[in-house]
Design a protein around this nucleic acid. Sequence first.
DNA 1: ATGTGTTTGTTAAATGTTTGACATACCCGA
DNA 2: TCGGGTATGTCAAACATTTAACAAACACAT
Lengths: 208, 208
Amino acid sequence: MEKEISQAVIRRMPRYYRYLGELLDAGTERISSNDLSKRMHVTASQIRQDLNNFGGFGQQGYGYNVKFLYEEIGKILGLNEKHNVVVIGVGHLGQAIANYSNFAGLGFEITGLFDVDPDVVGKEINGVTVHHIDDLEECLKDRNVDIAALTLPKSQAEKTARKLVELGVKGIWNFALVDLDELDDVTVENVHLSDTLMQLSYNITKKK
Amino acid sequence: MEKEISQAVIRRMPRYYRYLGELLDAGTERISSNDLSKRMHVTASQIRQDLNNFGGFGQQGYGYNVKFLYEEIGKILGLNEKHNVVVIGVGHLGQAIANYSNFAGLGFEITGLFDVDPDVVGKEINGVTVHHIDDLEECLKDRNVDIAALTLPKSQAEKTARKLVELGVKGIWNFALVDLDELDDVTVENVHLSDTLMQLSYNITKKK
DNA sequence: ATGTGTTTGTTAAATGTTTGACATACCCGA
DNA sequence: TCGGGTATGTCAAACATTTAACAAACACAT
C-alpha cells in the first residue's frame, strides 16, 4: 500500500488548483516553484514537497508546465470524473448551494433537491425541482449520486446521513451543526460556518 | 508579551464551545477531560493541553464546571462582546448569511446589507434593508461595525475589502474566491466552500 | 479528620509538518 | 554539441503539534 498523504497537504491542493487555473487563463505556459511561491505567499520548498507527494510533475531547469500540472491536480482531486450532488434541506443555504454556478465548472452537478417543507417541495431552483425527502430512495435509485450536501437542522442531520449512506452516497458535505465523523462507510467534510466566524472573532479580539 | 497561541488550538475552540453548550442545555454540571474526550473523539490530553493555554479552568479530582468553562471559552472567542456585521454582496449566499439566525445567539448581529444590483437594493431581508454599496461610508459611520462578510464576485473583493478596512472594519469573513491574506490592518478568515468540496472529492476518490 | 480514588496541570517523548540545502538533471543560448 | 545557469526532487534539520505519563491537588465517602 502506498503511503497516506496527509490532510495538511490535501487542504492546500485546491488552492494550487485555483492559482494554476488563473495562470492558465492568463496564458502562462510554465511556472517555477519559486515564482508560484511568491504569488501564493508560501515557500517554494513546500510547493515542491507537496507536489512530489503525487509524482514528479516538473522538470529541472524548466519548472512546471501550467496546463499539465493543472490537469494533474484536477485528477488528484477527482475532478476528472463528474460528481452528482444532491442537496438535502432547501433553506437559504441549500438554495445558495443549488444556485452556485462555480461547482458545475468543477464537475459537480446538482441533480436533486430535497426538503420536508410543503412550501418548498415542488418549487424549481436553478432548473431542478425540489422533491419531498420521503421520495429520496426512489429519486436516487440508479442515479449514481455520490455526494450529498446536508443543509438541514442538526436534529435531522444524522438520521438523514445514515439513510443517504444506505442509498450509496459516498461523501457528505455537512453544513449542519453536528459532527458526523463517527459514520461508517462514508467520507464526511464538516463545514461549520459559525466556527470560522468565531475564529475570526478570536483573532480580532486578540489584536486589541 | 504572552506567548502566541497556535491557530491549531483556536480552530478547536468553537467545537469545545459547542459541546459544552450542549452539555449545559442538558443540565450537566461538571465534566472531566476524559468524559469529554469520549464524546468528542479527541484525546483527553489534547483537551487539557488546549484549555491550559488559556488558564487553569479545572480542578483536580473534580474536572471542569460546564457553565464556567462555557463562559470562559465564550470570552476567549470574543463572544462576550457584541459584534456588528455587514454583508457585502446580497446574492444567494449573502442572503443565507443574513437569514442565519444562529449567529445572533453568538453575539453577531447583522446590521447592514449592501449590493450594487438595483433589483436587490431597497429590498428588506430579515428586517434589514439592502443599501447600495456607494452608501457604505455613510451607513457605516459611527456604527461600530467590526466584521464584514464578503459574498461578492472575486473581481470586486479586494477593492471592497480595502474600502471596508478604511472604514474601520477589523475582520473580513471572506467567501470570495480570492485570498485576501496580504491586506494590512485587518484579520481575514477565508471560507472557500469549493475548496472543501474538492477535499471531499479527493477523499472519496482515494477510497475507491 | 483521614485516606482512597479521581482528575488536573505539566513535563517530556513521540509524531508530524515545514523549511533549508544541495546534488542531479535538464534547458537553452552560442 | 557544449557549458553555464536554472529549477527540480529529495534528504535532513528545524520546528510544531499531539500524545503519554505522572506528581500534585482536590473531592468525597466513611
